[in-house]
Design a protein around this nucleic acid. Structure first.
Lengths: 214, 214
DNA sequence: CACGCTAACCGTACGGTGTTAGTTTTCACA
DNA sequence: TGTGAAAACTAACACCGTACGGTTAGCGTG
């Protein structure tokens, strides 16, 4: 089949199908042939819309990144960080199989940079020195990426009894795979809350030093 | 060549060569053929020592995991978490290309479970309820994995000027790629310190509640 | 000592991967 | 009305993980 009367594909259709495939069957079964199959098309046709597989994955990552909310810095750095971290975490939790895609190549992707820029600006506007803003944004990103790519739920889900006999300390809390997802979100909340609480005194002391200087 | 007089390969030699290859050329160029080439051998021979590529990667991950220090919980949960987090972070920082390998399949690998068990035990022994121990261990793991898999340094190293014009807030702190590595380790330290500081009051209040109960 | 089994290497091949080249047809525009 | 770009195709390349079978060295046992 040569060029069709109306286009069968578009960047959006391809990108959405890729995300669906990743969600449904995992990143391992996202191949160009497989993706094309889902779109009733041959693999080579995809290259009319994307330069390669990496570009398709970038589009997926950008789609997810764009769902992140960086608007709350207007209400202060704590609110900003909390909202940013939570929405970032939520966006990745909705698509756990796609999390590694988002984690890869963060520094190169357009929409990630826009997000990072907004966060950095929000922190600096509320009194954090630029260098600290960089480090704090990185810290929260670490939490989000770590939580999304190595969730508790992805760990010991099956046949717990077998190997847990050898790890007596783990048995206590981990015997309930059903609660794994809850543990994941609670852990992230604890970490984010703890980090923000821990940064409070630092912010205060930096502000005091700033005032003393004037 | 049939069976040689003295074995050319061993699990250790293969595992070490794999790590060297990952360090030198990235995980993308670790193929069974490539690995065999480095060992002056054909790819099929590797299957006499490992059931498959995944097993080789597991061996690499276990090797790195075994370098992590979980002994400091004897001196309290703060010392324990700090030492654990730092040594974990250091082990992965020494092999940044291998970090995703360690991040994958944490809940299934033998040596990771042993580490998790030690950490969980250390936290519980110092007064954290099991459920909190689980969440705190997960939090620090998030930081380590996040920092190792999406380091600042892996981001915008090249051609900064080009795209940074569009992200005014980022320009401030990021123009010095040479400092990227320093920013990475400082960010991790800030996050770990902040998290531990933030957890202090929680530990105190839990201990108080525990005392009140008795 | 001789037998036979297993271990460790090899060559080959199968199905799957990302990607490219070249072909055909349709659409949009000069 | 012609022309070139766009969007689909078929076919092929190089590479991947891995399975199969063949060959021989080493070792335990009668």
């Amino acid at each position: 089949m040569p060029r069709p009367k109306s286009p069968l594909l578009s960047r959006e259709r391809i990108r959405d199908a890729a995300l669906e495939l990743i969600d449904a069957e995992g990143i391992g079964s996202l191949s160009m042939r497989n993706l094309a199959l889902k779109l009733d098309v041959r693999a080579a046709s995809l290259y009319s819309h994307f330069p390669g597989k990496d570009a398709v994955l970038d589009a997926v990552a950008n789609l997810l990144t764009r769902q992140v909310d960086t608007s709350a810095f207007e209400r202060g750095w704590r609110e900003g960080l909390e909202t940013w971290g939570r929405s970032y975490h939520a966006a990745l939790s909705k698509h756990p199989n796609a999390a590694p895609v988002v984690a890869a190549g963060t520094g190169r992707r357009e929409d990630f940079l826009a997000m990072a820029d907004a966060v950095h600006g929000g922190l600096v506007r509320d009194g954090w020195p630029p260098r600290y803003a960089t480090m704090i944004a990185a810290s929260v990103k670490y939490l989000v990426i770590g939580a999304a790519t190595t969730p508790f739920a992805s760990g010991f889900a099956d046949d717990t009894r077998v190997y847990f006999e050898r790890y007596p300390n783990l048995v206590q809390a981990h015997l309930i795979p059903a609660h794994a997802e809850e543990i994941d979100s609670d852990s992230f909340e604890l970490a984010l809350g703890g980090l923000i609480a821990g940064l409070g005194p630092l912010h205060a002391s930096l502000a005091a030093a700033d005032t003393a200087k004037e």
